[in-house]
Design a protein around this nucleic acid. Sequence first.
RNA 1: GGUGAGGUGGCAGAGUGGCUAUGCGUUCGCCUGCAAAGCGAAUCUAUAGGGGUUCAAAUCCCUUCCUCACCUCCA
Length: 386
Amino acid sequence: MLKLFNSFSSSTEDFIPFEKSLVKIFICGPTVYDYTHLGHARIFLTYDLLSRCLNDQGLRTDVLVNMTDVNQNVFNKAKETSTTYKDVAKFYASAFVKDLEALNIQSINRLAYVSDYVSNIEKQVLTLIQKQVAYMAHGNVYLDISKVKNYGTISHQTKEQLSMHRLDIGPGKKNPEDIMLWNCTEDFDFSWKSELGEGIPWWHMQDTAVAIENFGKNYDIHGGARELLYPHHEAHLAQYQLLSGSDVPVKAWVHVGLVLSGGEKMSKSLGNVVWIKDLIKKYDQNLTRLYVFSKHYRDDIDFSEQDLLAKKPLLDLIQFAKSNVSDKTHEDISNLIDDFVQSLSNDLDSPMALRTLEKICIEVRNGKGINQNDFNRICEILGIIP
RNA sequence: GGUGAGGUGGCAGAGUGGCUAUGCGUUCGCCUGCAAAGCGAAUCUAUAGGGGUUCAAAUCCCUUCCUCACCUCCA
């Protein structure tokens, strides 16, 4: 039984999917206006590990990633490079896919481009207006937060705290924290004509539309970086609840820690961004995976090349074990493999699992046997190809 | 201010009540004409401070101090 920490309840819970043997996962994907960095990649590596663990337990996974191509950053990039937003999106989306492939991330089976869902977004926003939970003000459409039960639960904020945020400052908003759904007032050189007026479908509503169109009224896991907790996931849940009619449309909210570099958050202005395309030129995906998984997914990682290289001895041990598989697995090793799987089942405790893996390899080096199937199983779960 | 996560040797970084990993570094040896690399070995009075629970605490509880992230577009 897999246990996962659920941000909604702030506790580690037994994970039970809506359907018996199928787990539907939505991951907040990239805004496709630049290359993929290690922070992005860690997200997808984490859910790849999660998927592999679920697969190992006999569950199928259906992993959906939305590609944000309707976004000011994408529009700006298009302007800078004198192309269309579609071209910008296409270029960076294909770079993203290439980077994920290089990291042996195979669990994602649906990529959804937001621009393909604009009419769905329009339809859903109209539904929210009909339900009288959304309203128009000075051309924009907002979600009326006062109509949402439990708003603030995921980010642990009270009504008073929420009221101190002034999101999407605009005239005519009923509450300062009301969420923009459709933006008609800003000019981005791109817009969509709709019953809501000519404008842009706004951020939070994009993911909701993509998820509903693909998964229907509920799904099992919503994933993304921890920084998306507020306002993005709070808004997504509110919209999803109102549209699906379900109070709990998502079983578990699973958030991944940030990747820092030099003790600070990666940013282009600080010049400390670690791009995947550069990283995989120097190190293979095995080492990158072992490095990322050596920290618990909910902790932040302060990237250093030295720490990444420090995983090389473990990789060497694994490679030694690979070339020394035998026909029978020793009972001690069998027990250790159980521990390995058990650690991962405990809220994806990969640091502990890797320690156990190290023990396994050392036992193999000491002459205890591991058979090909058992060895392959471990590699398959971790996604490494020694 | 609110929320969340932390403080482990010279540095990085595991450890989820019972001989504390591992890597880097440092030292020595092997190898080499010398060095580097590689291999082998050794090494470091480490668990933020103070209380408590326990036969036993890095690990559980209380407390003080400190750090980081998020709360605005961000993965």
